[in-house]
Structures are given as C-alpha cells and as structure tokens.
C-alpha cells in the first residue's frame, strides 16, 4: 500500500465520522457514539499491515478500527441506527461492532476489557499453530486498568503473537493524563520495563505508524514475542457525541488548534481542489450517503429476532 491509499482510507473514515456527526441530531442514531475524528492515522497505519485473518479487537471508540480493518460500512451504520441489518443485528450499537469476515473480532464498551481477549486470541493462534497476529487497540486510560498489566504479563510469559496498540489521546473522558498518571511518565517506557519490546511514535503520521507496525508484525511472526506501540494523537470532538467541547472547561481551545495543525489528513485537505482528491471525496460521499440510506431504511430487530438470539 502506498501513501495515497493510506490517505484515501483515512479520508473515507473521516467522512463517515463527519456524516455521523452531521446526522446525529436527526435522533435516528440513538446510542452512545464515540467518534474517531483526528485519530484516523493509527487505525489505518495499523490495519494496512494486517491480513484478513489477522485479528483486531477494539474499544468504545472503534469506528476507525472497524473500517480500517475492512468492516462493512452498511453494517456499521445500520448497527448505529439500531437496525437488524447491523453487524450485531442491533443488539450492540456503536460500541459493539464486529465483522468476523475481515478479522474484526469485536469492540466493547468497558475500558481495557478487550485486552485480555486479544491475548486469548493470540493464545489460540499459538496453540493452533497459525502464522497470524492478534492486535488490540486501547487508549491511555486503559493503561491504568489492572487487566492491562495482567494481560501483557501473560502474553510475555507465553511469547504470544499479540500487538498492543495504545492510542494516547491525553484524556479519559474529561480527565487529563496529569490527574491520572505521574508527571513525566512515558507509557511505552513503563511498559518496556515489564519485558516487552515497546516503541513510541507520532500517531498522526500514518506512514510512520505503518512503518512501525510492519516491523512489529514481522518481529512477532519471527517469534520475538508480543510488541507494544504507543502513538500520540488527539480526539477532536467530545468524548461521546457529535459536538466540539473545548468550551466546557476541561481543555483549552488552543490545545485543540495545535493538534488540528497536525491533522493526519492535512495533505489531503490542502489539496482539496485537485481533481484526484475531488474524485475521492465524491466517491466516498456517495457511498456514505447510500449507507445511511440503507441503515435508515432497514428494519428494527423484532421481538422475535431478540428472542432468537437470547435462546439460540
């Protein structure tokens, strides 16, 4: 994959997320929705190095990961609309996405709780002697959970093929890192002390992310054990929902503007008028519009569907 494909993939995700933000006020997407705008480069940089059989697990902010892994857009939007055509048949909503056909094994709402599941997937791959890797996305908040330490420790002991991706966006909801972790701590350095290879990079630089992950995947498959990568990034919108929230008092507008200058899609937006770029915008916008139409016009799950799933 070359740079333009990575950028196209990021643009598609950005446009999907913005379409959700724009349409959220219609009150048809009736579930907590955590947008990935500003964080697309990590999802794309990571997943562009994974095969369909490599597995990904994710957290509450999973749209970018799901789409970057190749998850079906129609099914994702239908899920957010609560429709039976959704990837989880409307049982999960925005926070519970799955598309097993492309190795996206699930995203969950509880901070850090897919980390051990990804390690378990890697254990299965090892026992079943598959040359695959299991990859898990989580935020800086998850590194404060006990299960994070427990999971990495077990992965090291068993030399499991798992790639830990920490997206450090500085905030756990409205609580900044400064009130949650000691001043001066570097997450990737702390993790290295556990005995795992660990690196740190610019999470808004898609090529850098991709390069790091390519190397990490090779190391894992060569038997060098689990790898940990921390990438700095920033969530542009509010923790949950479609709006900006720089005015409510937990972070400064200046901070947001600084990060906006580092927009992973900067190049593409600066070249918006190029025909090549226009074609991409048009293509994606048409696809996204169609996907919203599909979701909006799908049926809600029936009581029978619900009963079928709980009794199956």
């Amino acid at each position: 994959m070359n740079l333009s494909e990575l950028q196209a993939s990021m643009l598609r995700i950005r446009l999907v997320e913005e379409s959700i933000a724009n349409k959220y006020s219609e009150q048809k997407m009736r579930c907590p929705t955590h947008l990935s705008i500003g964080q697309e480069a990590i999802a794309v940089g990571v997943c562009s190095n994974l095969t369909n059989e490599d597995q990904v697990l994710s957290s509450h902010r999973a749209h970018a990961h799901y789409l970057a892994k190749g998850g079906c857009l129609n099914s994702m939007l239908a899920e957010i609309y609560g429709k039976v055509t959704g990837c989880s048949k409307g049982m999960g909503g925005s926070m519970h996405l799955i598309d097993k056909s492309v190795g996206f094994m699930g995203s969950t709402a509880i901070v850090g709780n897919t980390i051990p599941v990804a390690v378990g997937s890697a254990l299965a791959m090892k026992i079943q002697e598959k040359k695959l890797i299991s990859c898990v996305f989580f935020g800086d908040g998850a590194t404060e959970e006990g299960v994070f330490y427990e999971s990495i420790n077990f992965a090291i002991i068993h030399n499991l093929p798992v790639l830990f991706i920490c997206e450090n966006n500085l905030y756990s909801v409205y609580s900044g890192l400064e009130v949650r972790q000691p001043k001066g701590r570097k997450i990737f350095e702390m993790v290295r002390a556990f005995g795992i290879e660990s690196s740190h990079g610019d999470g808004n630089n898609v090529q850098q992310v991709s390069d790091y992950v390519e190397l990490a995947r090779d190391k894992i498959l060569s038997g060098n054990g689990p790898q940990f990568l921390e990438f700095d990034t920033y969530r542009w919108r509010e923790h949950c929902g479609p709006n900006y929230d720089n005015d409510i008092g937990y972070r400064e507008e200046e901070e947001f503007l600084e990060w906006k200058k580092k927009d992973p899609l900067k190049d593409i937006f600066e070249n918006k008028d190029l025909d090549l770029v226009k074609v991409l915008f048009n293509k994606f916008n048409a696809e996204i519009q169609q996907a919203h139409h599909f979701a909006d016009n799908s049926e809600f799950p029936s009581d029978k569907d619900f009963q079928q799933i709980i009794n199956s």
Binding site: P116, V119, G120
Partner: peptide
C-alpha cells in the same frame, strides 16, 4: 491474574 485469565479464556473460546 484472575481477570485477565478469564479474558484470555474468552479470546481462546471465540477462536474455537
């Protein structure tokens, strides 16, 4: 590590 080991079991279980 009771919590992680339960999650590890879930991950193994969803893989057959």
């Amino acid at each position: 590590s009771e919590n992680a080991m339960t999650g590890v079991g879930i991950g193994a279980a969803i893989n057959g």
